[in-house]
C-alpha cells in the first residue's frame, strides 16, 4: 500500500530573484518502509521534508498522503490530519520547556482530547519501549540530548501515526547517543510498522534505512536499497556521496 506519493513536486522561492529549491521530484513510499533522504547542503532535502510535512506547500505538483492531498484541506482539518496521521522528530528536539517529559509526550493526545486513562496507558507503553520511564516527571532542562531526542520520538509515535517524519534527528547528538537513537528508529519501524522518512547528513545514520534517496540541486539523483549487510550499505552510501560531489569535509561536518 502506498503511504506517500509525490508527483512532479517543484518548489520555487522568492519573488523577484527566483530560486528553485525542488524540481520535478517523484517519490513513492510503501507502508512500513524506512526511507532516508540525503544530499549536500542546500540540495533541498529539508524543503522536501517540509513539503511532505504539510507545512510548506509545493509550487506545483501533488502530494498524496494515504491517498489524500493534505494541501487541499482547510486549516482546521489540516491540523487534525497532522495531529492524527503524522509524527515529527526534529534536530533540536523542539520540546515545550514548560511541560514535564511525560506531559510533552502525551501532548498530541491532549490536543486530541483523549481520556486521561488512555493517555496514561499509552504513555507507559511508549516510555517503556524507549526506555525513558524514569525521567517522565523531569523537566526539559534536566535531561541529556539523547534523552530529549528519545522523548521527542515518544511524542512522535504515541498516537500511532501513519507516517513518522524526522529532520536530522541525530544532528545534535554525540555518536553514542546518535547510534542509540537510530537503533530505536529501526526497532520502532520493525515492531510497529510505522512508515518512516528521515532527512540526514550522516551516512552512519542513513545506513539504518531500508532505502536511501539522494537529491542534488533540488533534483532526484540516485536511490539505493539496503541488502542484508548494514556495513555494505554504509559503504555504498559513502560511494554515492563521493560521486555526488560533496566534499569529504561536508560529510563529517556533522560531528563537530
Amino acid at each position: 500500500m502506498e503511504i506517500l506519493k509525490l508527483k512532479h513536486i517543484s518548489k520555487i522561492y522568492g519573488e523577484r530573484v527566483q530560486h528553485s529549491a525542488l524540481q520535478d521530484i517523484n517519490l513513492t513510499i510503501e507502508k512500513g518502509e524506512f526511507v532516508g533522504i540525503m544530499g549536500p547542503s542546500g540540495s533541498g532535502k529539508t524543503t522536501l521534508l517540509n513539503v511532505i510535512s504539510t507545512i510548506d506547500p509545493p509550487t506545483s505538483g501533488e502530494v498524496l498522503l494515504n491517498g489524500e492531498n493534505p494541501y487541499k484541506l482547510e486549516s482546521s482539518q489540516l491540523a487534525l490530519f497532522r495531529r492524527r496521521k503524522l509524527g515529527f522528530v526534529f534536530q533540536d528536539f523542539n520540546l515545550i520547556d514548560t511541560l514535564t517529559i511525560g506531559e510533552n509526550i502525551v501532548l498530541p493526545l491532549t490536543l486530541d482530547g483523549h481520556q486521561v486513562s488512555t493517555m496514561d496507558k499509552k504513555l507507559q507503553e511508549v516510555a517503556q519501549r524507549l526506555n525513558i520511564e524514569n525521567i517522565l516527571t523531569k523537566r526539559t532542562y534536566e535531561i541529556s540530548g539523547g534523552q530529549a531526542q528519545r522523548t521527542a520520538i515518544a511524542r512522535a509515535i504515541i498516537h500511532s501515526p501513519l507516517l513518522l517524519l524526522a529532520d536530522e534527528p541525530t544532528g545534535n547528538l554525540d555518536s553514542k547517543a546518535a547510534k542509540d537513537v537510530m537503533v530505536l528508529f529501526e526497532k520502532i519501524n520493525r515492531e510497529t510498522g510505522v512508515t518512516t522518512v528521515m532527512v540526514t547528513h550522516d551516512p552512519k545514520s542513513a545506513s539504518y534505512c531500508h532505502r536511501v534517496i539522494f537529491i542534488k540541486d533540488g533534483r532526484f539523483y540516485n536511490e539505493i536499497h539496503r541488502g542484508d549487510s548494514r556495513r555494505k550499505f554504509y559503504q555504498q552510501i559513502l560511494d554515492v556521496l563521493s560521486l555526488l560531489g560533496g566534499e569529504a569535509d561536508d560529510l563529517s561536518a556533522i560531528r563537530l
Binding site: 486549516s75 482546521s76 495531529r83
Partner: peptide
Amino acid sequence: SKEFGILLILGMSPKQ
C-alpha cells in the same frame, strides 16, 4: 512564536 510553531506542527488547530 517558536513554541506555537511546535504546537501547530504537532497538530494543534488554530482554534485550539
